[in-house]
């Protein structure tokens, strides 16, 4: 077996929870977009080139607000600001991945990021290709899901209500793994508490950016304390 096949086989099992979540959410996205009169080609294009789930859902509600590209740009900055944190966290992980690097950066969604945080390439597997296939498989699920949704809009009989909880479950499990992996729980608690507080203060649609700022301030002010406990 060559290097790539091995990496693909190692990556596949880790992506199964995302397969479930993305097929379901992607289908929901396809159904919504087609309800606005857009064919499966538009679902495919947007999922290929935007590839940011929550922003794609927001874009559908923006369609009704009229043609305002600047506003769309501003809202994208707000909704996707959390990706700045993902990038900073992956600066050293993505080092030396060569030609694969631009795609790794392009495909760094919430779910791909959380998998790359927790799943490490097994011994003998090339790390770059391992991360590449996790990213690629996830995007394939997302694109297929959204095309499927556009095509079979009304054919669904199985009651899937609540199945999108699979992504929440994935994040909870990764949270527990992170908690167990370190004796220093200050950063984990910082993220949790800052988000809860900001959600209460700023409401459900505006709390991510304040939460990011609060996290930044806290980990900066207490840098010495956090680093000394990391040893």
């Amino acid at each position: 077996m060559n290097e790539k096949t091995k990496a693909l086989r190692a990556a596949l099992p880790y992506t199964i929870p995302v397969l479930t979540g993305y097929m379901v959410l992607g289908t929901a996205y396809g159904i919504l977009l087609s309800s606005k009169g857009y064919s499966f080609l538009w679902s495919a294009l947007t999922s290929l080139f935007i590839y940011a789930g929550s922003m794609q859902f927001v874009s559908i509600s923006l369609l009704a607000a009229g043609f305002h590209p600047l506003y769309a740009c501003f809202l994208t900055l707000m909704v996707n600001a959390r990706h700045l944190f993902y990038g900073i966290s992956m600066l050293s992980e993505f080092q030396g991945t060569g030609k694969k690097k631009p795609y790794l950066i392009f495909g760094l969604t919430d779910e791909t990021f959380s998998l790359l945080c927790s799943a490490k390439a097994p011994a003998g597997i090339d790390k770059g290709w391992f991360m590449f296939f996790i990213t690629l498989l996830n995007q394939i699920y997302w694109v297929c899901g959204s095309i499927l949704g556009s095509i079979v809009s009304s054919l669904f009989h199985f009651n899937t209500m609540g199945i999108d909880f699979v992504l929440t479950a994935l994040f909870v499990v990764i949270f527990i793994n992170q908690w167990k992996s370190t004796g220093n729980h200050i950063p984990v608690l910082t993220g949790l508490c800052a988000s809860v507080l900001c959600r209460i203060i700023f409401g459900s649609s505006n709390f991510i950016v304040p939460a990011m700022i609060a996290i930044l301030i806290f980990v900066t002010v207490f840098q010495n304390k956090i680093e000394s406990r990391n040893t």
Partner: peptide, 27 residues
């Protein structure tokens, strides 16, 4: 990369997953 950014790169992953959990539960 500046030391401060490297530090952020180490510490932020531990803060973001909690944020994502709350993001899923925000409504």
């Amino acid at each position: 990369t500046p030391q401060y950014i490297t530090y952020l790169g180490r510490v932020l992953p531990y803060t973001i997953i909690g944020m994502l959990v709350i993001y899923c539960l925000k409504d």
